[in-house]
Design a protein around this nucleic acid. Structure first.
Length: 621
RNA sequence: GGGCCCUUAGCUCAGAUGGAUAGAGCGUCGGACUACGAAUCCGAAGGCCACUGGUUCGAAUCCAGUAGGGCCCA
């Protein structure tokens, strides 16, 4: 498909041309002007407002309104096709302009013509980007917090795809650190138990039912072979088997919310392939590391208070979106150790971070930046979707990017805040202490995939989210996903009705479309036309929630228009064939935009929905 | 004690790179169906955009500080 301009782009193009023209005539200084073209809040101000005169005022040393008049003049001269039908200077120096309505109608035509591809743009220019999300430790099934990370990350990658980026969806598996070792030991305990022993479970062992299953499976496979064997003989095997099993569960959890990855990167493989070693050599070659000691803690209570020991993180996370990777501080290093430190403080981090422990083994952080180093070789832009508890981790990752000769903006981190699960407004008890974790799978099975996905995206990702199970199940307007899907179904009900009454779905005709003259109809057309812009903006800000709000607004506008038509008698299917075709075509555009917006979010767009049990309308009274 | 995020209507939240009179939903009150989905819509009431200063033509938005909440690290 040819790259056609969006309506707003056309305006930008015209303004730019006008500015060049005026500068050439000596009306104002030459050079780029950082102007904006916005749809004003108040529709009476026109289709778009341009602030170029105000921006230019400083440089030109002339009052904005005077400049605006000049720009208007230049715009008239540049607009040879007559696309701008009204231009006026307003307020402090805005140029309000109105477009030939046909331009909007043509945009509607394009929306329907593009069909399921409507909204795709090329702003990403095929840039390679890796979106890493979920990356939950393979020590248990996904909980609700992971779900929000997964859905948000998936929304981000989807947006980037729609915006023309070359996207790889990636999951980083922490299959090497202390936590999976703990899992391996926990499984071994269950293995012993399965073979008839009575064993005690230390507090830090993983409690889940799945641990028991893995233990039992290994008991069946190996019988007593590893019953009394030293840990060195079984730990790696048990760990790997457990990880494999848990990853299977995680894949299942992801499948339940329809998320797939293009690539699963393994921490263990980073070591085995020598990537970590190569990375450290690279650091040494660039003189980015040195041997030294950890800086003393900033605590006031007595210098040299020892860092906490290497206790493994608690097994099952509470509501944290992602389980924290064991930071360097949890790896049992003390202040007196001679460590290999990375000069991250020279690149904006607070302190230098250890990449090798006293015994020469790499730290978790080391593997992690090695991973980013390796990823950056495969892509131009890296996105990490992390739990908000990793906020402190971001500066050192960015420092690493810069130290390695990239831009710190080549890595963008999307932070995901906590999910507060409620049922009918009351908090569902969750917490690390109680061990009462709510698994993602339970939620999906209760409320469905669509509601789960949609509701996770009803907030900016860095704001905490209340997720109410009762609301998610409700088939009423309080439930936002239902509201949008219902609107889509209603549009299709109109199409069905048209078919029943022998009205064919129209193809585009400008003459027909010109009958869309009411303010509500023009507004709907404009919203449809702005959809590609909305998607591109959301993609570049990595904010999938914007799509949710867009859908919410456009469907509300539709419902309003529809109901108003019922009252006034100006129905979609009316007595005048031309108007009927025009309105049907508008509905086609609406249905397409809703379907595509929902598709971006991975939510279905049903054409028909079941009536609730109460409203048995068809029954004769 | 240090760092990051946050504070907008009674409640839950939107406000794209600063734009004109700050918007939704819920809740409250009052209305609208012999149906192409009332699972909807219309109207009313509801605001010191936490506070103070700064930047400029212009600030909910950017900067500094203060207060309060969350997370991470000590």
């Amino acid at each position: 498909m040819t790259t056609r301009l969006m309506v707003r782009d056309r305006v930008i193009e015209l303004v730019r041309a006008a500015l060049v023209r005026g500068a050439a005539e000596g009306k104002w200084p030459e050079g780029e002007v950082g102007f904006t073209v916005d749809a004003p809040r108040d529709p009476r101000h026109g289709d778009f407002a341009v602030n170029a005169a105000m921006v230019l005022a400083k440089r030109a040393g002339r009052p904005p309104r005077e400049l605006a008049a000049g720009i208007v003049e230049a715009l008239r001269a540049v607009d040879t096709a007559g696309e701008l039908v009204s231009l006026e200077v307003a307020g402090p120096g805005f140029i309000n302009l109105r477009l030939n309505p046909d331009l909007w109608l043509r945009a509607l035509e394009r929306a329907v013509a593009a069909g399921p591809a409507y909204g795709r743009t090329t702003v990403g220019q095929g840039r390679k980007v890796i979106v890493e999300y979920v990356s939950a430790n393979p020590t248990g099934p996904m909980h609700v917090g992971h779900g929000r990370n997964a859905v948000t990350g998936d929304g981000v990658q989807s947006l980037l795809r729609w915006a023309g980026y070359d996207v790889t969806r990636e999951y980083y598996v922490n299959d090497f650190g202390a936590q999976v070792q703990t899992l391996g030991r926990s499984v071994h305990l269950r293995y012993q138990e399965a073979l008839g022993r009575t064993v005690e479970f230390p507090a830090k062992a993983y409690p889940g039912e799945y641990v028991k299953e893995i233990g039992a499976a290994l008991a069946a496979e190996f019988a007593g072979t590893y019953l009394d064997a030293p840990e060195s003989e079984w730990l790696e095997l048990f760990r790997d088997r457990a990880v494999e099993h848990v990853l299977g569960m995680i894949r299942g959890d992801l499948g339940a919310i329809q998320i797939q990855f293009d690539r699963w990167s393994s921490e263990k493989a980073l070591y085995q392939s020598g990537t970590v070693e190569r990375f450290i050599k690279d650091l040494e070659a660039r003189d980015l590391v040195y041997v030294g000691q950890l800086p003393p803690p900033k605590s006031k209570k007595g210098a040299g208070s020892p860092p906490t020991g290497g206790a493994a993180a608690p097994p099952a996370g509470g509501t944290a979106p992602a389980q924290p990777p064991a930071g360097p501080d949890e790896e049992g290093m003390s202040a007196s150790d001679q460590l290999t430190l990375f000069r991250s403080s020279s690149f904006g981090d607070e302190v230098d971070r250890p990449v090798k422990k006293a015994d020469g083994t790499p730290t978790y952080f080391c593997a992690d930046i090695a991973y980013h180093w390796e990823k950056r070789q495969r892509a131009d832009l890296l996105i990490d979707v992390l739990g908000a508890d990793h906020g402190g981790y971001v500066p050192r990752l960015k420092a690493a990017m810069e130290a390695l000769g990239h831009s710190r903006d080549d890595l963008h981190v999307v932070l995901i805040q906590m999910v507060n699960l409620t049922r009918g407004g009351e908090a569902v008890k969750m917490g690390k202490r109680s061990g009462n974790v709510v698994w993602l799978r339970e939620v999906v099975e209760e409320v469905g995939c669509d509601a789960t996905r949609y509701l996770f995206l009803t907030r900016r990702s860095d704001a905490p989210l209340d997720f109410d199970l009762e609301l998610a199940k409700k088939q009423t307007l309080d439930n936002p996903v239902f509201y949008v899907q219902y609107g889509h179904a209603r549009l299709h009900a109109i199409f069905r009705k048209a078919a029943e009454t022998g009205v064919a779905l129209p193809s585009f005709s400008l003459d027909d479309a010109r009958r869309l003259t009411s303010p509500e109809e023009t507004e709907l057309v404009r919203r449809i036309a702005s959809f590609p812009d909305l998607l591109a903006g959301a993609a570049q800000a990595f904010e999938p929630h914007r799509v949710v709000f867009y859908l919410q607004e456009i469907i509300a506008a539709f419902h309003s228009w529809y109901t108003q038509g019922k009252r006034t008698g100006e129905r979609v299917l009316g007595s005048d064939p031309g108007t009927t075709r025009a309105r049907l075509f508008l509905c086609l555009g609406l249905a397409q935009v809703i379907a595509n917006g929902l598709a971006v979010l991975g939510v279905s767009a049903p054409q028909r929905m079941e009536l609730p049990e109460t409203g048995d309308i068809g029954a004769d009274a």
